[in-house]
Nucleic acid binder design. Structure first.
Lengths: 195, 195
DNA sequence: CTGGGAATTGAACAGATGTTCAGTTATATT
DNA sequence: AATATAACTGAACATCTGTTCAATTCCCAG
């Protein structure tokens, strides 16, 4: 047996990444074998190595793509004039972007310990950059006295933890629409940082 | 080779649970082999099966012990008179209890997907019970108009996510004492739910 | 000091693991 | 139609996996 009919790298490549993301999110990186990913794609395990040098790079690529995608998407967002509106916009952006990519979010937060030290440092740097975006907003509000925070860095981490937590319970079929979820969280965020 | 000098089940048993907890937290359940746990304890892999029927039960036992310990500890806590003080007390209790057990917390939150469905249901039930403790406080404050929340269930999950997030960044050698951390988080929690 | 139970070893089991590669088939180019 | 290259197979590799168990050694009660 050799090449399969209708096979193209632009199709198989994304298929592999998608299957890996799904399976890593569901069962965890270490619990998923290359053969399971291959089975999900409909290909033999050896074929995966045409698209990734090894399993570790596959994981790293998924996490890196997620983080750079997140940063790029935020970079294109218009910045409102005042810190309160900026924070509202960040809150909404964060919740919606994360709700749209549950698998990538899950993997990016849960599989950090399965990265090599070098890869971990890179992902950690990207995450830091994202946190800095929020902290910048909080600092601006702090200096203009519309926010009151004992520690902007801790507040940043606390808010992000709270917002990302939506992914653990939100279900599309649940009682709350995405807009309603946004409103509920914005109410808490707004008050939590209020002067 | 047979029994080792000075060997007793009351010593080896806890040693195994502790080593498993540490290694599961560091590398993840699926990434840790029974042989690695045995090596850490200083014993052969076969000896582990005198203390657990299988690897799954070892994980489940650790998670169950953590959750029941958490619930039992909270149950012994004195309940202040008004909801605001109750919430303050819950916040402090949660942060300190979790900071004291980083490995158990990490494993209990990260390895849920490696539990069998039956074991998952049990752990999930315990977690629900703990969430209900916080939600009861929020509901009491809501009815007495000291809290103002669009949705007490969501607020519960949001606050717990925020508080548990401390474990991801807190380091004993860091710039903030545990009391300072408590104060910072209580400031945000108090305001977030305020009427 | 002896006998019985408690604690552990070390080897073995069948199967799964990540990864490589010579061989094979399809697609694209001329 | 012939050729080149892209895509994939299937088998093989050494090693690791969870788990079992007869044999062995140690502890302790009588």
């Amino acid at each position: 047996m050799g090449r399969k009919t209708g096979s193209h790298s632009e199709i198989t490549g994304p298929k592999i990444r998608l299957a890996a993301l799904k399976l890593f999110a569901r069962h965890g990186f270490a619990a998923v074998s290359m053969r399971q990913i291959a089975l999900d794609v409909g290909v033999q395990a050896g074929a995966l190595y045409l698209y990734t040098p090894d399993k570790q790079s596959l994981l790293f690529g998924l996490m890196q793509d997620h983080m750079t995608g997140l940063l790029a998407a935020w970079a294109t967002q218009p910045q409102p004039a005042n810190p309160v509106d900026q924070l509202r916009h960040f809150t909404e952006f964060h919740i919606l972007y994360h709700l749209d990519r549950p698998d990538a979010v899950f993997v990016s937060y849960m599989e950090l310990r399965n990265l090599t030290p070098e890869n971990f440092a890179i992902i950690e740097g990207l995450r830091r950059s994202y946190e800095d975006e929020l902290e910048a907003i909080l600092k601006r509000g702090q200096t203009t006295d519309v926010f009151s925070l004992p520690d902007t860095k801790i507040a940043t981490l606390a808010l992000i933890a709270m917002l990302t937590g939506v992914n653990t319970w939100y279900r599309q079929s649940g009682r709350l629409s995405r807009n309603k979820v946004n409103a509920i969280y914005w109410d808490m965020v707004r008050k939590a940082v209020a002067a």
